[in-house]
């Protein structure tokens, strides 16, 4: 069943036709050719498809595109500012926070969203005192980034990259 929708992707309005079954991830990849969001598991189990969806980090593989008509999506590609890499992307480069690169755009988007969540005072499972403001130590970074699996084992460098940006 086909539906016309519009998505604001990486700063640009895109009109497209999707099947009601089409996920936001497949709308980006198969319909719009926006490949920055990756498909690693297609079931919300790896985080590779993470984008900023209306400003918050979100997996796109279980979101039906038809339910997000009019949404604003920023991928890791769209984080680039006038050809300059986003500070989080630059930190990933500097700290070698990736190897094969497939989980990386999702990690980058997730890190950007996560830093905003911390700024907004959102706690995590490892936050000791829910009543206090959050201090972003390594344990917090690790917990908050655990929704993005990396099979190459770049976690240590990912944490280092985010630690640097957060400083």
């Amino acid at each position: 069943m086909d539906v016309r929708i519009q998505l604001h992707v990486d700063g640009e309005w895109r009109a497209l036709t999707v099947d009601t079954r089409t996920t936001l991830l497949d709308a980006l990849r198969d319909r719009l050719g926006v490949m920055s969001a990756k498909k690693g598991c297609d079931h919300g189990q790896c985080g590779a498809c993470t984008v900023l969806l209306d400003g918050r980090r979100a997996t796109t593989c279980l979101a039906l595109a038809v339910a997000y008509d009019g949404a604003e999506i920023t991928t890791a590609q769209g984080l680039t500012n006038g050809g300059m890499p986003h500070p989080v992307s630059q930190a990933f480069l500097d700290h070698d926070g990736f190897q094969c690169g497939y989980c990386t755009p999702g990690q980058v988007c997730s890190a950007v969203g996560m830093l905003d969540e911390v700024k907004a005072g959102q706690p995590s499972y490892v936050t000791r005192d829910l009543a206090r403001s959050v201090e972003l130590n390594d344990e917090e970074i690790r917990e908050r980034m655990s929704g993005n699996l990396c099979r190459c084992g770049a976690y240590v460098n990912i944490v280092a990259a985010i630690r640097e940006v957060a400083r």
Binding site: K38, Q77, F92, L93, G101, T104
Partner: peptide, 9 residues
């Protein structure tokens, strides 16, 4: 290949 990978391109 880093710049292309961190942007997903």
């Amino acid at each position: 290949d880093g710049p292309a990978k961190v942007t997903g391109t």
